[in-house]
């Protein structure tokens, strides 16, 4: 196994592109190192991206924030600006692993690990976040929603590395929330999850809504109908019930050791309801 600490994104991309064998990108290492220790993967090349200048910084950009790919989620969680603008994204990122893991793990890493249950993905997709990707041929931008391709799979091409994620600006009276279901209270992986991002009118009517579900399909699912259901309402009970049904309709989960199809489907709707109410309150909607 070769280890390369790249000092530029291009160096990382070129090394990954040139390697014929199994490669892994190392940021926090909270997935890669665990998988290596368990014998699930034996990489021929590990490229550490933490030495790339600027990759571990959070920078204001166009009213939003650009989050470097190596920003640890604990650092993200202490950033007041990001927390104020996208609290749901931050709370999702901060649910990953333990306190110790938080000191290492990153949102970009969570996205690239491509677990359907990843806690960072639903919030980022609900936020319409955009990933900046370095490749052997240069840089490109890609909506986060288009990165996951299936369990353990992304749409990134050989040699491509996510270098940052842009959380966009948003109007006043807008907020988001993320909830996941785990049988414990921490140190676990989502059995079902939901992120809801809302924009409200001055009178508290929902103007725009995006509902995204996790762990109920091979990738995160944007529940378009569920989002539409909320628009023009103030989240009355009938609306929420209808929204939960719309969430259930897009769930295609599996039966496994973590939960049944029926449980995941029902719970995704329940979580979306609860997350919507939290996002609504955060956005200044009176309830």
């Amino acid at each position: 196994m070769r280890y390369l600490a790249a000092t530029t994104a291009r160096e990382a991309a070129e090394a990954l592109a040139a390697e014929a064998g199994v490669t892994r990108v190392l940021a926090g290492g909270t997935d890669v190192l665990v998988q290596m220790k368990a014998g699930l993967v034996e990489p021929d090349l590990v490229v550490d991206i933490k030495k790339i200048p600027g990759i571990a910084t959070i920078t204001p950009e166009a009213g939003g924030f650009r989050i470097g790919a190596a920003v640890a989620n604990a650092v993200l969680g202490e950033h007041e600006g990001v927390r104020a603008l996208w609290p749901g994204v931050v709370e999702g990122a901060n649910l990953i692993g333990s306190t110790q893991v938080q000191g290492r793990c990153t949102m970009a890493g969570n996205l690239c690990n491509a677990s359907p249950a990843g806690d960072a993905a639903p919030g980022l997709v609900a936020a319409n976040a955009v990933a900046r990707i370095a490749g052997p041929e240069g840089e490109r931008d890609c909506p986060v929603a288009d990165i996951p391709a299936g369990p353990g799979k992304t749409t990134l091409k050989k040699g491509e590395v996510i270098t940052s994620i842009l959380l966009p600006a948003r109007p006043a009276r807008a907020s988001d929330a993320y909830l996941r279901f785990i049988p414990r209270t921490e140190m676990d992986i989502a059995v079902a999850s939901a992120a809801v991002s809302l924009e409200l009118d001055a009178d508290g009517t929902v103007k725009a809504a995006r509902v995204v579900l996790g762990a109920v399909a091979p990738t995160v699912v944007v529940a378009e109908d569920a989002g539409r259901t909320l628009v023009g309402t103030k989240l009355d009970e009938a609306t929420l019930a209808k929204m939960a049904k719309a969430c259930e309709a897009v769930c295609k989960p599996i039966d496994d050791k973590r939960g049944t199809v029926a449980f995941r489907t029902k719970t995704a709707g329940t979580l979306a309801k609860r997350a919507a109410l939290i996002a609504y309150a955060r956005a200044g909607g009176a309830k």
């Binding site: 279901f181 049988p183 059995v191 939960g259 049944t260 029926a262 449980f263 029902k266 719970t267």
Partner: peptide, 8 residues
């Protein structure tokens, strides 16, 4: 009495 079993 795991949550899926209780919910069922």
């Amino acid at each position: 009495m795991s949550p899926p079993r209780v919910l069922k």
